[in-house]
Nucleic acid binder design. Sequence first.
DNA 1: TAAAAATACTCCATAGGTATTTTAT
DNA 2: ATAAAATACCTATGGAGTATTTTTA
Lengths: 298, 298
Amino acid sequence: MDLRRLEAFCKVYELKSFSKAGRELYLSQPTISAHISTLEEELGVHLFDRLGRSILVTQAGEVLYRNAKDIYELIGKAHSEINLLRDKVVGDLEIGGSSIPSHYLLPGILYDYCKKFPDVRIHMSVGDTTDILNKIRSGKLILGVVGATTDAPNIEFIPIMRDKLVVVAPPVLVKNYDGIIDIQQLAELPWVMREGGSGTRKALEAGLAELGTNIRDLNVTVWVESTQAVVQCVKAGLGISVTSLLAAQTHIDSGELIHITDLPLNLERSFYLAHLTGREFFPAVRYFIDHVKNSTFE
Amino acid sequence: MDLRRLEAFCKVYELKSFSKAGRELYLSQPTISAHISTLEEELGVHLFDRLGRSILVTQAGEVLYRNAKDIYELIGKAHSEINLLRDKVVGDLEIGGSSIPSHYLLPGILYDYCKKFPDVRIHMSVGDTTDILNKIRSGKLILGVVGATTDAPNIEFIPIMRDKLVVVAPPVLVKNYDGIIDIQQLAELPWVMREGGSGTRKALEAGLAELGTNIRDLNVTVWVESTQAVVQCVKAGLGISVTSLLAAQTHIDSGELIHITDLPLNLERSFYLAHLTGREFFPAVRYFIDHVKNSTFE
DNA sequence: TAAAAATACTCCATAGGTATTTTAT
DNA sequence: ATAAAATACCTATGGAGTATTTTTA
């Protein structure tokens, strides 16, 4: 089934004439004849009964025409959908966020973006930094907001916001101390720790490395896989931990968590908008990147 | 939009690889590359992002694939509908009948045919012989059952049944006569007459011609355009007429109409199954012709 | 005889091939 | 080093043309 032949067929159907169809399509009459007969051969039926100098559509021709109209409609639909996607801010935006960004950063950004571009459908997925980056690499996600970079050469990281990590402890654990805790004491206290893929954990590892130590020297009692779980575990008295100030602030204010300051740990990290290098962005994505840049860094 | 290119695109989409798509379609990798890039040029978007040795679908590619699947489904539908029409007794049967056949002949024939071939949708249209033949000539009808032939060389007439035409009169008009009416008296009585396209009228004209006379010698008071109207007009006492025994029988039996016999008029005619020569019949039509031949002439 | 489709042929655009280069794993 | 896509270039199928014949209105 060739679309040029189908087009010739449709014109012949509409004009009930091979030569008129040829004139309208800027093709010669023999070309139309050839197209119709190859179509007929392919389908194994006559599409027109040739009555000498006039023609009549057969029932098979009627059936083919009905379907051909639908086929052309679908092709038109495909074209217009693609043109829309290319020229307007529409489509589906698949974005991933690691724990902290997806809970404390993206909601506000997405809210403003949705208001500006209501024709974009947004799909947000949550995972740790490693999950998100893997999905970006495999093409499942076009954009992600993560709390750590990797040395992968094919992913570009655009820093969008600095984040402060804090050491938090349950009141019950630190009431024996006088408010000042040194690094030695820190290692002795029980720890609540995130999994390896976490950006928060990577930042902690980097901070510990500066002090010439590492996670293996800490007394980890619980391993958990989300920021919320860390906060809840610390609040429950299971141990101390490091987490984003964004996630801990309200709990510190309410006195449920103690913010341990005056530590030699340099716990800062950035959030990054990550995407694969070499990907072409359609407008909805380009505008999202611009929007994120404008609404985070000042 | 070329279907071969679209097919190449779909395979690449499914296998996420130009070379694998080439292998499955028995095409070389450069051919696939060329197809994808001409498609991309035509649509004005990238369908795949080339990341060196792997590729990722773009959003435009996703949109195209969804539509391509629908397009192929429609093409498959067209093929299977046509195959069905070619190989099985299915489809639409457009059949026309002139007054008498459509009321007294076709209903029974169609009833039996429908029972034998329940997958055929039948459309019956009613008109006088000339109407039906014009519709056959123009291709609006494939078959017709009519009460007269014409000398048109491109229409084939298959006789299927003989019909007897009778002169009928309202009792009020013939009560002054002694039951025997000669051709002279016939000309003096008021007549109810069918229009020129009627097969019944053509048969009457032929009968009158044998007697060396014609319609202009008759005293026509009413011209009507259907068998039913003729019967009703005669019953109402407007005049006498000639009509099919099939249509008059019950009225004669009930005494509402008087059947004037013993006339020198040879009023017989046949019904014919008419179709255009040179038309290809799909099975539903072939089987209908066979069915009519078997169920009428014995 | 005039108008339309079929047939016969010629031509060239392009689908498809092979060989090679480029690029990233 | 290897696997995949891009590029370059060649070949040949078949789409489209012109000229002519056939058919019928």
